[in-house]
Design a protein around this nucleic acid. Structure first.
Length: 694
RNA sequence: GCCACCGUAGCUCAGUGGUAGAGCACACCCUUGGUAAGGGUGAGGUCACGGGUUCAAAUCCCGUCGGUGGCUCCA
């Protein structure tokens, strides 16, 4: 006699056990027709699972033609589409063994093991889709059946797919005493897959799908384990939704910082120099310099001292810090001094031996610095410190080198040489809270100037179960509390995640959402009890004895490379004027106006504005177009009318029309003020209050 | 590092074993044009690099380097 509660709070009584499908029917035929699954007491289930006890039910629906489907609906559709894709692939390649096929954000994938002689490439996608289409057209029901754990396991073992046996074993180890299968159609007659479910009622409910890409993966995510093939796909309720999704992907591709970086001549990566090493071209260097100046200004205001340190340091320094040899794999090999090299050569030292002797300290050398902290620590240690001096705050745009795996390199986002907006704070345990708050404050100022209001922080705490952490537990508690309180004080969303701390201290990561909704992990603040210990750092306390300082590492924007890569994608290359390599471009209508155009340009330059001049003999249309392609924020068209009246005719990037003529002096004042204030588009809103925002 | 795919002019890309192509960009000429490509002419390539097969290789095979998408990793 179940009483079913619906999301609106109303209840319905049933005389006997009822399925969510029947509940939907009792509400109305429209709901029943669009139902594809249900949430029963917060758990997603199939429509045909009988419910005997009181429960609250929400029907998950997907209607053809709806412009947006719920996350739950898409989860069901994609999970089901993964099955259909697997069935299609096994029709085409019967020997392929299935491993694991979950829905993921944006779609789904299926991992599979391809025996010798089976090869799937992107050229096969059309064939796979054609098979999938046929399966969807057959509209066969997803039919679940269960077996006891032992029975199920022996079935799987007889089928000879060790991956599915493993999946089942894991489910059993996780507490299941039953295993379930889903057949697309009749169990026994049609294709089936071991699966926990749930699924949409039938294959026909998968509205629109596409096989997207193919990639490698590893069994259990373990790179020493079996190499699997992963095929990605996506699915939606409706063809229009799929089309919109593909368009969004296209939009993301257009924002790709590698593409825009080329278009706008911001940076280049040159084989002759080396992979993962960025050459900042003049335009990109302006963006970086402006940003660094901005960050430096606020860092100074927060009481940091600017320092400069070299790009290399003795190996012994990094033995002390622990960076060498623990992270040897991701470092460029050490630099060995000439005389040492000669001795080693004389001794006929092998490469393996050399490596051992470098590690043991028997042979000395230098390392390209993988971190700035050891250098900053030595600055701290270079003079006696009193508690009155603390906190000591050292800041440097410090360039470091890490030999990232070749497959990891990606434009400016993952590189081998990069410049961190690095800073190290040496403070007393009591000062941690305030200092961490200062770091968050800086992030807040800079994000709000850049117009990014959607960001959150992640606080990484100890895993209480683990003993991998260094330092005194009381200190940890202090630092963790400080981090959480700082995050709270910042007034942005944050999650505290246990087990996400570094072994040497808790940390805070910044995650920012860009203009098209993607999340980017940028900088971090980390409390460190380890390095002060390793370097035996101290300060003299009020009690006239030596105390150990705590260190805080902070690179709130990560690296200049990654941060600017992110900014390029966020702004799609259309930077606010203060960051723009070319802030304004003057376009003479013809040679006859060239002289006035030059005067306008030189007046702009006198205001410290970066002003270009298009003196080519193209027609105005072509000049307007090319300025737009270079994403110059402001374009001033000047012709005889303008020179006569001392006006400029203004265009702004993103507004595809002539905004009209304004007095030259007014424009100079407005733009200079916008740029000085690091504002975005205020020159336009001042001069042309009616114009649409850029 | 692993797997798949890719590498042709500055850029985007065509070119299935038989004399290297297009558009854009660039240079020059004509055009002096008021808001997203005016017209013409020209220059530009060791087809990533090295080896092999072949009468003949951008094209087929092997290797190296580099890139892309994933996986693994990220102090």
């Amino acid at each position: 006699m179940p009483t079913i509660q619906l999301p609106d709070g109303s209840t319905r009584q049933f005389d006997e056990p009822v399925t969510p499908g029947q509940v939907a029917e009792s509400i109305g035929p429209g709901l029943a027709a669009s139902a594809i699954g249900a949430m029963v007491d917060g758990t997603m289930t199939d429509l045909d699972v009988p419910i005997a006890e009181d429960a609250s039910i929400a029907i998950i629906t997907a209607r053809k033609g709806e412009s947006e489907s719920s996350d739950d609906a898409l989860w069901l559709i994609r999970h089901s589409a993964a099955h259909v894709m697997a069935e299609a692939i096994q029709r085409l390649w019967p020997d392929v063994q299935l491993v694991y096929g979950p829905p993921v954000s944006g779609g789904f994938y299926y991992d599979m093991w391809l025996p010798e002689g089976n090869k799937i490439s992107s050229e096969d996608f059309e064939r796979i889709e054609a098979e999938m289409k046929a399966i969807v057209a057959e509209d066969r029901p997803f039919t679940r059946y269960d077996m006891s754990a032992t029975e199920g396991l022996s079935k799987l073992e007889s089928e000879g797919n060790k991956y599915k046996v493993d999946n089942a074993q894991r489910a059993i180890d996780g507490g299941s005493d039953e295993l379930s299968w889903y057949a697309t159609g009749n169990p026994g007659d049609n294709w089936e897959d071991l699966c926990r479910g749930p699924h949409v009622p039938s294959t026909g409910r998968i509205g629109a799908f596409k096989v997207m890409s193919i990639a490698a993966s590893h069994w259990h995510g373990d790179s020493s384990s079996d190499q699997l093939t992963r095929i990605y796909g996506t699915a939606f309720t409706d063809r229009k939704q799929l089309k919109r999704h593909l368009k969004q992907l296209e939009e993301a591709r257009k924002r790709d910082h590698r593409v825009i970086g080329k278009q706008l001549s911001l940076f280049t990566i040159d084989d002759a120099v080396g992979p993962g090493l960025i050459l900042w071209k003049p335009a990109g260097s302006i963006v970086r310099q402006e940003l660094q100046d901005f960050i430096s200004l606020y860092t100074r205001r927060q009481g940091y001292d600017q320092v400069f340190t070299p790009h290399i340091g003795r190996l012994e320094l990094y033995r002390t810090s622990g960076h060498f040899p623990y992270y040897q794999d991701s470092q460029y090999p050490p630099i060995i001094e000439r005389d040492q090299m000669a001795i080693l050569a004389g001794e006929g030292c092998s490469c393996g031996e050399l490596s051992n002797r470098l590690e043991s300290g028997d042979v000395e050398g230098y390392l390209l610095k993988p971190m700035n902290c050891p250098h900053h620590i030595r600055i701290y240690a270079s003079e006696p410190r009193s508690y009155r001096d603390l906190p000591v705050r050292l800041a440097e745009f410090g360039t470091v080198y890490r030999h990232e795996q070749s497959g990891e390199l990606s434009g400016m986002l993952r590189v081998r040489g990069f410049t961190q907006d690095d800073g190290h704070l040496f403070c007393t345990p009591e000062q941690i809270g305030e200092e961490v708050q200062g770091c968050l404050e800086l992030v807040k100022i800079i994000f709000s100037t850049l117009g990014m209001d959607q960001y959150r922080v992640r606080v990484g705490l100890r895993d209480p179960e683990s003993d991998k952490y260094v330092g005194d537990p009381d200190n940890w508690k202090l630092a963790e509390t400080a981090c959480i309180e700082a995050a709270e004080a910042m007034g942005v969303p944050f999650d505290a995640e246990a087990g996400e701390a570094a072994f040497y201290g808790p940390k805070i990561d910044f995650v920012v959402r860009d203009a098209i909704g993607r999340d980017w992990q940028l900088g971090t603040v980390q409390v460190d009890y380890n390095l002060p210990e390793r370097f035996d750092l101290s300060y003299i306390g009020a009690d006239n004895t030596a105390h150990r300082p705590v260190m805080i590492h902070r690179a709130p924007f990560g690296s200049m490379e990654r941060f600017i890569g992110f900014l390029i994608e966020h702004f799609a290359g259309a930077f606010p004027a203060w960051l723009s390599p070319e802030q304004v471009r003057v376009l003479p209508v013809s040679d006859k106006s060239l002289e006035y155009a030059r005067e306008v340009q030189s007046l702009l330059r006198a205001e410290d504005l970066r002003a270009g001049l298009d003196a080519g003999d193209e027609r105005l249309n072509a000049k307007v177009r090319s300025a737009a392609e270079k994403k110059v924020p402001y374009v001033l068209v000047v012709g005889p009318r303008d020179s006569e009246n001392r006006t400029v005719s203004v265009r702004a990037h993103g507004i595809e029309r002539d905004l009209g003529a304004v007095p030259l002096d007014d424009f100079l004042a407005s733009l200079a003020s916008e740029v000085r204030g690091r504002e975005h588009g205020t020159a336009i809103s001042t001069l042309f209050p009616e114009a649409a925002p850029a």
